[in-house]
Amino acid sequence: MNSSAKTIRQSGRIVVHVFVTLFAFVMIYPVLWMLSSSLKDTTEIFTHAHQLIPLKWNFDNYVNGFKGFAGISFSVFFKNSFIITILSVIGTVISSTMVAYGFARIRFKWAPFWFGCMMLTMMLPGEVLMIPQYIFFHKIGWINTFLPLIVPAFFGGAFFIFLTTQFLRGIPKELDESAYIDGCDKYQIFIRIMVPLLVPAIITVSIFKFYWTWDDFFSPLLYLNSPKLATVSLAIKNFSDPTMKTDWGAMFAMSILSLVPIVVVFFVFQKYIVEGISTTGLKG
């Protein structure tokens, strides 16, 4: 009886592993297809689209793609994306942690009301804010600059504030009281005690903000007019020109390169992603 039960469990595990493997292949197939297409000639991409292994390996797609367009190298677009993304991450981390500390640790009048107002902003569709924001940035002369893509991050984000607040509420308040007894004020408690304890939440916020900013296409399309200021996502779209012959191989090659920072960040910090999400979800 024990041997038969053990055999059933092993068979069940095999079935589960086979199913998970097949499901993972289905999920990753578009990336594999794009990687394969980045190594094919343009004609082969469409005539042998079902084949993942190229008939002829064409690494020139990466060379031609990195040359960019309009005399602008693709390294310029990567630089623009990194500038916008890194500064946005820094602004989001600073503002969100400070606001979350205020909601979680400082008592002030109507705190639940203001916290509720902050949460309600998460329900506003981006389309509702798009036109007023564009008019505002146009009035102050920020169009065709990085400022509309960076400065708003320094005023916090509702989702990140909520996530950090939940994490802070799980930290015992006895730490604050002990610090008060030792002579620390609210600012010293935040810098010396809370910030080191907030590292998992800060890394989680940084990763999500990095992903969302790096992949953002619509905002750069809306605010950036000069080709020299284009981000990676915007530059990849510009490879496709319906009025001329599109170099699909080069476009897919640059699409693969655009995934490299995201993949690197994920594999380096995946432990912190799970830890940050689990702790912010279970505590509070």
Rank of each mutant, 00 (worst) to 15 (best):
M130V: 07
I131N: 10
P132Q: 06
Y134R: 07
I135G: 06
F136N: 09
H138T: 14
G141I: 11
T145C: 05
T145A: 05
T145E: 04
L147E: 08
P148I: 08
I150A: 05
A153Q: 09
F155P: 09
G157H: 12
F159G: 00
F162M: 12
F162Q: 04
L163P: 02
T164V: 15
Q166D: 03
F167I: 05
I171V: 15
P172K: 03
P172W: 01
K173P: 01
K173G: 14
E174N: 13
E174P: 02
E174G: 15
E174L: 08
L175S: 07
D176H: 06
E177M: 06
E177C: 00
I181K: 02
G183N: 04
G183C: 04
C184T: 03
D185I: 08
Y187T: 13
Y187Q: 11
Y187V: 14
Y187P: 00
Y187E: 10
Q188R: 14
Q188H: 10
I189Q: 11
I189R: 10
F190D: 05
I191G: 01
R192E: 06
V195T: 15
L197P: 00
L198G: 02
A201D: 08
I202A: 13
I203N: 06
T204R: 07
V205M: 12
F208Y: 15
K209A: 13
F210G: 09
W212E: 15
T213V: 14
D215H: 03
S219K: 10
P220K: 04
L221P: 06
L222F: 07
Y223N: 01
N225M: 10
N225R: 14
N225T: 10
L229N: 03
L229C: 01
A230N: 06
A230E: 00
T231G: 07
T231M: 10
